[in-house]
Simulated assay, not measured.
Amino acid sequence: MGLMTDVLILGGTGWLSGHVARRWVDAGASVTCLARGARPAPAGTTLVAADRSAADAYDTVAGTDWDEVVDISSRAGHVASAVAALADRAEHWTYVSTVSVYAQDDVAGQDESAPLAEPARPGDEYDYSREKVSAEASVLSALRGRAAIVRPGLVVGPGDPTDRFGYWVSRFALAGDQDVLAPVSAAAVSVIDVDDLADLLFAVGRDGWSGISNAVGDGIPLADVLALARDVAGHTGDVVTASGDWLEAHDVGYWMGARSLPLWLPDAAIGHWTRSNTVYRDLGGRLRPLRETLERTLDDERARGLGRERASGLSRADEVELLAALAQR
C-alpha cells in the first residue's frame, strides 16, 4: 500500500480506538478522530466533533481521500452510514468486530468460517452480536478486497473500562491476608492484551491486508488465571470457592456487570475460549505472557484505587457477606 499518510479513526477518543490512533501518530501519519467530542482526542491527532446519528455526520471528512479508515462502532446504522459516505474515498478499511458474531458458543475450536448470528435489521431491539454481524456485512459489501475484519475476544489490560479482567488481581491485592470468593469452574478464559490488539489493527491497515481474523488468546483454565493473579497480587489469604448453583442462588452473576464474578462462564460455553487464533498468529499477532498483562493491570488498578466502585464484580462488602454465608452452611 505504501506509506500511509491520512488516517481517519471513527472514534479515537475511547480505550482501544485511542491506542490505535496513537499507533498511527507514532508512525508519522496525519490522524483525524471523528467522535462526539465528550473526551479529548489523543495528542497529535485532529478531532472532528460529530454525532454519528446525524445526517451530516461525515460532511467534514467526506471530501478527503483516506489511506486508512478504522471503525469500532457496535451500531450497525452508524457503520452503514459511514460506509455509504466514505467507502469510495478509502483505500483500506479496518472494522473492529467481535467474536460475539458467531452463532454458536458451545462448539469447540471453530475458526472464522463458523456460522454467524442473524444480522440486525432496522427497528430491531438492540443486540450487540447481531449489530456487529450487520456492520460487518456493510463493510464487506462495499469494500471487499479493501477491508480487514478483526474479531477480538476479551480485550484486557490497563485502562479497561469494563472492569472485568482487572477485578481478580485487584481483589486479591485488596484482600491481602483475608479470604477471597471464587467460583468452582471447569471453564477457561481467552484474553488479548489491548496493546497486542492495537499493534495488529495498526499492522493490517499499514499492510492493506484484506480478510477476516479472530484476535483471541489461547484458552487458559479460569482456576489457573486466578492462581496467577493471586501470585502477582501477593495474596496470602484463602481462596474460598462456591458452586455455580450456590452463587446463582445468591444472585451472583456470570462474566461481567454488577454483583458478578467476572470472567466466570458456564462450563458449556466452550466455544468462547477455544476459538481459533491461527490467522491472527499468521499475521504476526503477539500474545504476551499473561503474567505481564496482570502486572500491568495491577499497576493501573492501584492507580485507580483498589477499593473503588467497579463496573463489574462484587463490592468487597458484598463479598464478605457472601463469605460469611458460606461459612454458616
Rank of each mutant, 00 (worst) to 15 (best):
S134N: 13
A147W: 05
E91Q: 12
V189N: 01
V184R: 09
I149C: 11
R171V: 13
D193Q: 02
A135M: 12
V139C: 06
A90R: 00
A117L: 15
D195P: 07
L174E: 13
A82F: 06
V83K: 02
W209I: 13
A147T: 07
E112W: 06
R151W: 10
E118D: 15
A182Y: 04
G176L: 04
A147V: 10
D196P: 05
G153W: 00
A87Y: 00
L86Q: 01
S97P: 09
V96W: 08
A188P: 05
V156N: 08
S113Y: 11
D196M: 01
Y102P: 01
P158L: 01
D124H: 12
D193L: 01
R206D: 15
S210I: 04
V83Y: 04
S129T: 14
V155S: 04
A175G: 03
A85T: 13
D105E: 14
A84N: 14
R144V: 13
Q104P: 05
L197Q: 01
G109M: 11
E112F: 04
D105N: 14
A186G: 15
V156W: 07
A120W: 05
T98S: 14
A117R: 15
D106K: 13
A117V: 12
V204Y: 02
W93M: 04
V99A: 10
A148D: 03
S170H: 08
G211H: 11
D105T: 14
D193R: 00
R130Y: 09
S100M: 06
A90L: 08
R89G: 05
L86N: 01
Q110I: 14
S185H: 03
T98R: 11
H92I: 03
S170T: 12
V99T: 15
P122T: 10
P183Q: 04
A85M: 14
G157A: 10
S100A: 13
I212M: 14
T94P: 10
D160N: 13
V107W: 06
G166E: 12
E91P: 03
A173H: 09
A173L: 10
P152C: 11
D88C: 13
A215K: 03
P119I: 08
S210N: 10
D193P: 01
Y167V: 09
R89T: 11
D195E: 15
V83S: 02
V156S: 13
A90H: 02
Q178H: 14
L174D: 09
H92R: 03
G123M: 12
D177H: 11
P183M: 07
V99R: 03
S185F: 06
T94K: 06
G217D: 09
P122W: 06
G159S: 07
A90K: 03
G217E: 09
D199T: 00
V107I: 15
L86G: 00
Y102W: 05
T98M: 10
T94V: 15
D193Y: 03
A108Q: 14
A108C: 12
E131G: 05
E136Y: 08
A198I: 02
G153V: 01
A87C: 01
Y167H: 09
G176F: 04
Y167A: 05
